[in-house]
Amino acid sequence: MTTLYFTEEQRDCLQELVNVAMGQASDKLARYLDTLVHLQVPAIALVETEQLPEHFARRYPQHNASLISLGFFGDQGLRGETIMLYQLENVGVIAQLLGYDDDDSSEAEMLTDISSVLTTTFLNGLAEQLENSFSYAAPRILSSRDQHFVQKLADTASQWQLALQVDIRYQLIDYSFNCDMMLLVPGEAVLQLRQMLNKVLAGF
């Protein structure tokens, strides 16, 4: 099996693409929500999938994180899954921000909606940077209040070879909080992604 490393150049390139995509996403969301939304990506990190559960168990010690998964498929074999992790206490705030506080939507419905808006807005931008386009599977809740999320994460992550961890920071005028997004990509898609990054790098 080919090792799934990225060169420093490829990694920087990916970080740049993620930054641009997140910039576009925050711009779109700000216009859509009519409020100042600033999505920052401090750093991306490539993580061995087997280390993920432990990593996130440390980040969410209360065990009450919600995990929402959304699958994506692009051209040229690029595919994967995104996982959003929220701390449940933030759900109400995000719901309010997205205008969900005035109807009968259940918490589960809000979670999947919010995740799909945030991830697809970002992924569309990323696909565009890679001259690709993604189609999406419906989001699903892997774990919420009733379950222990770390085991679920371990089950999901074990199916993938590479995890790209993207910490997202949401900033609003008077409130900010963190949530995490992970891009999980299978090994053969990593090879495709490397080629795409090389193509982008060659274009500079």
Binding site: K28, Y32, E109, T112, S116, V117, N124, A138
Partner: peptide
């Protein structure tokens, strides 16, 4: 509105609605 303005898909699941 979100589909039109953000050009993203939206989903609804029978388990939730």
């Amino acid at each position: 509105d979100s589909v039109q303005e953000l050009q993203i898909p939206a989903f609804s699941n029978w388990e939730q609605r």
